[in-house]
Design a protein around this nucleic acid. Structure first.
Length: 554
RNA sequence: GGCCCCAUCGUCUAGCCCGGUCUAGGACACCUCCCUUUCACGGAGGUAACAGGGGUUCAAAUCCCCUUGGGGUCACCA
């Protein structure tokens, strides 16, 4: 036996779309495992599908990973991460290597050219299916003579290279699932180089894992059966065998596989039920829209998808790491929760950080069963993490979130108001986003506050004395408060005293009319905080406007 | 459909490998009550699971088999 190799794990996303939670968990586990073993974690971009690859998406991946606190020792260079001796780390830049390895396979008789068209193969597949037979490539091209192949190639006929699959059982040994044997005959002569000259996933992955010295392949269970193909390839090429671990899939609450396509799926349904034949105004151009509607495999650009969703008034599901970021989730909570989907440290421990994960992660404690992603529990974890933060930390992080996603809100807020609002929102808020979307009143013009009839009836006009009566009585009291005393403590003493005298001590009778006058609604932070987030003059204006609006003309 | 994998509360899971400590534990959700100026938080309780059937054994959530159910995979996608 050779000396144990340094542990090398890798995360190898295709750059179509953004990093979604399933991919994020794979990356997290690969990273944590490498860190635990003092090894290396590398990132490789699998962009061998020219139709689906785009540069911007891979940048998004990198930023998402960074945000989660996952760094990589080798891979694309990005903000201090990446580089390394085994590059390039984009597969599209490694074609020479693949071709060299392909040649070896051809020379050794383990691979051969085939020239069927996609249509021909499709027809054969359909035929087999119609007869209730499992389709396997029939090896027709294997009977082509060397001369025939040469002349086709010389004539520029486009063809693929297939792996000549030895007919033998393959036993996969898996650190998570145990071992499983795929019977001979289940694997046919699969394509390893496409007609466009690019390798297929199976081939590129095997070559790269060898040349990048990957020792542990930790990936989702959807790849489990593929592993047999990879092992056959490794044997034919004389490569070392990495250790495999296949992690459970992360599913939607309905049990379907959580996919980045779920957004498009939801949107298409919405478009259909709205009977739209053209894109909503100011969203996407009609051509894009049409081809997207016609091809279920097409994904709308994320920004476009968001625009269409807004136009149709539907809410896109959070799928990508970036969606959760935008919604105000904390990266440490996402990591914690992701790790808990499929792994548990035991001993009823649920809340932990990445350092703990690195210390305790054990491959054989990873679950074998698919997990449904429970957004409600995630939200609860997020709320707990937020309320456990020091006030100052919360304010800093909330502001940073706001600067990123709610710049206008911050601009409209008076100096010093943000701190007050954040402090008042801290313990009643479950995400960093919440304070920005539930407190419109704080940045609204005094003149724009309106109260709907139902609320007015309930809070202002009913009962004896009515809420309006209390409001009217409060005007001189509030007006009498000096600017210097415009703080929660002082206001509380004034209003409590009033409530004791005029409302039998029932604060609600006084606070609710005030809240409605100030915010237009029945929900806001505690009333004394609400009062002080606004300036005294703003409060007076709003209260007077409200009284005026609901006082019947004499 | 062929092949492979899996199976504990509604959900995430502990326990399973090394049968007895399990009248199956925790968390989220849900229900009830308490607190309360709205919302939220908080406090106290509660409902809720070993898929079914056969074995093995003194004893099975734990080991074996079958059935059922779920997932994955069968592309010139990754």
């Amino acid at each position: 036996m050779s000396a144990p190799r340094t542990v090398v794990t890798r995360f190898a996303p295709s750059p179509s779309g953004h990093l979604h939670v399933g991919g994020a968990r794979s990356a997290l586990f690969c990273w944590a495992y490498a860190r635990q073993k003092g090894g290396r974690f590398l990132l490789r971009i699998e962009d061998t599908d020219q139709k689906r690859s785009s540069d911007s998406a891979s940048i998004g991946f990198l930023a998402d990973l960074k945000w989660l606190g996952i760094d990589w020792d080798e891979g694309p260079s990005f903000e201090g991460c990446g580089g390394g001796p085994n590059g390039p780390y984009f597969q599209s830049e490694r074609l020479d290597l693949y071709n060299e390895q392909l040649d070896r396979l051809i020379q050794s008789g383990n691979a051969y050219f085939a020239f069927e068209t996609a249509e021909e193969l499709d027809a054969k597949r359909k035929l087999a299916k119609g007869e209730g037979r499992a389709y396997r490539y029939d090896r027709a091209a294997l009977s082509l003579s060397r001369e025939e192949v040469q002349s086709k190639l010389a004539a520029g006929v486009s063809g693929v290279i297939r792996f000549k699959c030895p007919g033998q059982d393959v036993t996969i040994v898996d650190e998570i699932l145990g071992s499983a044997t795929i019977p001979a005959g289940e694997i046919d002569d699969f394509v390893i180089r496409k007609a466009d000259g690019f390798p297929t996933y199976h081939f590129a992955v095997v070559v790269d894992d060898e040349f990048m010295q990957v020792t542990h392949v930790l990936r989702a269970q959807e790849h489990f059966t593929n592993t047999a193909k990879h092992m056959l390839l490794q044997d034919a090429l004389g490569y070392r065998r990495p250790i495999y671990g296949h992690m459970p899939i992360i599913c939607n609450p309905d049990g379907s596989k959580m996919s980045k396509r779920d957004k498009d799926k939801l949107l298409r349904t919405a478009v259909k039920s709205a009977n739209l034949t053209h894109p909503p105004e100011n969203t996407v151009d009609p051509a894009t829209f049409q081809s997207w509607m016609q091809d279920k495999n097409k994904q709308l650009d994320l920004a476009d998808a968001q625009k269409v969703a807004e136009a149709l008034r539907v809410v896109l599901p959070e799928i990508n790491v970036d969606d959760f970021r935008r919604s105000g989730y904390l990266p440490e909570v996402i990591c914690n929760f992701l790790a808990l989907n499929g792994w548990s440290p035991g001993h009823d421990i649920e809340k932990f950080d990445n350092a703990f994960l690195i210390e305790r992660l054990q491959l054989d404690r990873i679950q074998k069963t698919a997990a449904k992603f429970d957004r409600v529990k995630l939200l609860s974890f997020n709320a707990d993490a937020i309320s456990a933060m020091d006030r100052e930390v919360y304010i800093t992080r909330a502001r940073a979130h706001g600067e990123c996603y709610h710049a206008q809100f911050l601009e409209r807020l008076a100096a010093g108001a943000f701190e007050k609002l954040a402090a008042a929102s801290h313990e009643r808020t479950k995400t960093l986003n919440e304070m920005f979307v539930t407190n419109d009143w704080a940045v609204a013009d005094d003149e724009s506050i309106t109260v709907d009839a139902k609320t007015a009836d309930k809070v202002l006009q009913r009962g004896a004395p009515t809420g309006l009566t209390h409001l009217i009585a409060l005007v001189p009291l509030l007006n009498g408060v000096a600017e210097a005393n415009w703080n929660p403590q002082h206001l509380e003493s004034i209003i409590k005293r009033y409530a004791d005298g005029a409302a039998e001590g029932q604060m609600g009778k006084v606070a609710q009319p005030l809240r409605v006058a100030l915010t237009g609604g029945t929900v806001s932070p505690p009333i004394f905080d609400t009062l002080t987030v606004l300036s005294k003059s703003s409060v007076m204006t709003r209260v007077r406007r409200c009284i005026h609006a609901f006082t019947s003309p004499a």
